[in-house]
Design a protein around this nucleic acid. Structure first.
Lengths: 348, 348
DNA sequence: TTGTACGCGTTATCAT
DNA sequence: ATGATAACGCGTACAA
């Protein structure tokens, strides 16, 4: 029976140090250090002795001490600043997390996620030397806070453009215009001739892009623009659908600019006796509900969330290696793979 | 215009140190340190000078260096070990996270969340001195991995009992027996007289507790036990429902031991022509789908997830302060507030 | 190939 | 009240 610790004891028992391993193995600290970090130039027998001692003592390197001398913490932070926890159920976040995680798994860096909305605590942690860089999920964050983060003395990249940011940052942009165009293109390809859109609340940049994409697509097809703003709440979305149907009874296709309005839209269509997809085909932007969240399952253009995460992680990692790039300009990137993904389901 | 950093520059520009602040303020390092940490015994004018210099230089304490000498990192980890990312959409996790977060927000400790399923990386991080303790979300984790974590030289508490753990740990237990009893009690109170249960896979401790609670409740009401094991997959759940209905056509109430089976159960009831709740009232354990995930919305007994999180955080914090408690025994705790929550919706 | 010695940024102990 | 100085655990030039 090895020595086990109780609850509170653990805090008192100090973890074994490099020094202790060295003594146990009969070598110097430096040699142990060499073995721990990719053993270069150490005789085989000593390597064995050291590894043995490490295993016996259960030695784990003290990252805090290491960070102090190497100026690297070997870990990077994923920040969810200034938002409630409903993001958790957002597939965008899940995909992004997976993309970041996969990319970092191939490196020695550890990913730590911070759900923190106190700016002071955020700054203290980031500046504290526990992380080498940060990825900020900026889709939903408060712009003022985001701008403050951009000024950190630490490489930071953003998952979406930061409005009004005056310092150069790394950021990933998804081409919402093209995505919206593709969504409408899909409706056209299945034969829709009177295509409307329930746009998001006016003013949000991504919402504007989606509206632009919609307008470009219908214009190119020689069709009229049939738009109504839906906003964020169910009531507004319902009103928008009602207006759309009243003014254009021949509506046969609908592009919904945000999945949060999807259920309300489906409900209203049903209430007005329209069958989906037989009477009206529906495509939504983003894919929060996936294949099972609605009836019928929604055809959706989703952001390529996993690629987005991978892209962010790579930007940040590249950043750390480079001595000095063109640091005077904001660096934008588009995810490697598709700039968006169209998932065709039952609603079209 | 203050000095701004570019992308890669940040990695090279070293953050200002205590020493530099001291020079700027014309005092010694020690004095600056005193000001930074709850200024005790420092003259007011010097306090001002130091605070000024701190603001001017944008000084942030280096937590890694501090951790080295104080043996405290002032941060604790929340671990999601060995699981895919579908937990993200689990309200249990969301509530737990909120409970932990709220509790820690009142302290100086920072919460960091690790989505990591590589045991080696997990151990390296935990032993690395970046965190003072860990809360493990052990509901879905691999028992072997959980047992390994329990042996860490670090205070660790678990959100659910760890099967087959041979070292004393801190853990929170939710009273599943009472919760199941209450669920069945609810069915009784609305007039059900033939109440069945779709139990979880035999062998899982919490599933056993729920079955026990069910049996106690029906026995107390003088009703017969009508049980069938459902397991974890849809097929098993469907078979269980079919068997139940075949053997007890007069079934008018159903207690489903896990929400993961809920959809399959609803589907089967519909397939057999039973309306919910008119013919059969349904209560499920756990509340993954919430108010909108199923039709009809399910009445559910959910774990008090936020209280659970708060409870875990308090256990861990208490742990760190105490010099030595009765460390030879596993420490269990029950969340402060309700041991469960009954949410009545459309299925009863 | 191996060991010695120094420094990373901070807190804490001791003088003053 | 304040300032030297010694740790904390580790990596790494440099010397051997």
């Amino acid at each position: 029976m090895t020595k086990h610790r109780g609850l509170a004891v653990g805090a008192r028992v100090r973890a074994p140090t490099l020094e202790q391993v060295a003594v146990a193995a009969g070598v110097s600290r430096a040699t142990v250090s060499r073995v721990v970090n990719g053993a270069a130039q150490v005789r085989d027998d000593k390597i064995d002795r050291v590894k043995n001692a490490i295993a016996r003592l259960g030695y784990v390197p003290n990252r805090a001490a290491r960070a102090l001398v190497t100026q690297r913490a070997d870990s990077i932070a994923l920040l969810l600043p200034g938002l409630d926890l409903q993001v958790l159920s957002d597939p965008l976040f899940a995909g992004l997390l997976r993309g970041v995680g996969r990319t970092l798994a191939a490196t020695s860096s550890q990913l730590v996620v911070l759900f923190e909305d106190d700016p002071r605590r955020l700054v203290r942690y980031l500046g504290g030397g526990h992380v080498d860089g940060a990825i900020v999920v900026s889709q939903y964050g408060d712009p003022a806070l985001l701008r403050q983060l951009a000024r950190q003395v630490l490489p930071v990249v953003f998952s979406a453009p930061v409005p009004g940011c005056d310092v150069p940052v790394g950021q990933v942009e998804v081409d919402d215009v093209a995505a919206a165009r593709a969504a409408v293109g899909h409706l056209l390809s299945i034969g829709c001739r009177r295509i409307g859109t329930v746009a998001g609340r006016p003013g949000l940049p991504s919402g504007q892009d989606r509206l632009t994409g919609y307008r470009e697509a219908v214009a190119a097809a020689g069709l009229p623009v049939v738009q109504e703003f839906g906003g964020a709440c169910d009531e507004e979305a319902e009103r928008a659908v009602a207006t759309l149907l009243a003014e254009h009874p021949d509506l046969d296709g609908l592009f919904v600019a945000s999945d949060v309005m999807a259920r309300a839209v489906l409900r209203m269509l049903a209430a007005h006796g329209r069958r989906v997809p037989d009477d009206v085909a529906v495509v939504v932007f983003d894919d929060r509900f996936g294949a099972t969240g609605t009836v019928p399952a929604l055809t959706a253009v989703g952001r390529p969330s996993e690629a987005l995460g991978a892209c962010l992680a790579e930007m940040l990692l590249g950043d750390e290696d480079e001595i000095l790039t063109d640091s005077s300009a904001t660096q934008s990137a588009v995810p490697d793979r598709a700039a968006f993904e169209l998932v065709v389901r039952d609603s079209t």
